[in-house]
């Protein structure tokens, strides 16, 4: 009888103890979130950034200097070498160039970056010697058509007779050295 009574009281004690403990722990969790309800302290402010909001949302220049946004190619400095086209893992750059008015001038007719496949890894920017391809901090690249996602920086195809004219110009430039 004694043994039975003792174990009942112990079981009753641990039963009540678990009730009190769990209710205190639940209440503790509630009151631990109280500072958030009453906005106490700087660290408990809301952190939502209303994106399309003109006032609070981040614009391109809030981003840190190195952030890799949409690409931009300064066509004057670009030599049309095609390094970036080769190194790009996603294969989304397409370069086509022709000899220009004289040997040092290159006419980069096509330079397309297909942002539907570009993954902004930054390898093309690193490999570009003339530093013409750079990351802007623009990140709003959405478009309605898949074709609009292709950004083209090329100067456009050259017409047939324009090419002929350049060809003659180059010969004239290189011919006098032999003549003289």
């Amino acid at each position: 009888m004694m043994y039975f009574r003792r174990s009942v009281f112990i079981a009753l004690f641990w039963y009540l103890h678990s009730i009190v403990k769990s209710s205190l722990s639940i209440a503790g969790s509630c009151f631990a979130t109280l500072p958030y309800l009453l906005r106490i302290g700087e660290s408990r402010k809301e952190v939502t950034d209303g994106y399309p909001d003109p006032i609070s949302s981040k614009t391109a220049d809030d981003l840190p200097p190195r952030s890799r946004g949409l690409l931009f190619n300064d066509i004057e400095r670009c030599t049309g070498c095609g390094d970036c086209e080769h190194v790009c893992p996603a294969g989304c750059i397409e370069v086509a160039s022709e000899p220009g008015a004289h040997d040092s001038r290159i006419w980069v007719s096509v330079f397309d970056v297909d942002f539907s496949r570009c993954v902004f890894c930054g390898l093309c920017v690193d490999i570009c010697q003339p530093m013409s391809l750079v990351h802007t901090r623009q990140y709003e690249g959405a478009a309605y058509q898949l074709e609009d996602l292709v950004a083209s920086f090329g100067r456009g195809q050259v017409t047939e007779e324009q090419r002929e004219k350049w060809h003659l110009a180059r010969q004239r430039l290189s011919a006098p050295q032999e003549g003289a």
Binding site: T33, Y36, L37, R39, R44, K45, E46, V47, T48, G50
Partner: peptide, 13 residues
């Protein structure tokens, strides 16, 4: 709104 305040966010706005 209450759960938004509780979770450090703005809630419907």
């Amino acid at each position: 709104k209450l759960s938004a305040d509780l979770q450090a966010r703005v809630g419907p706005c």
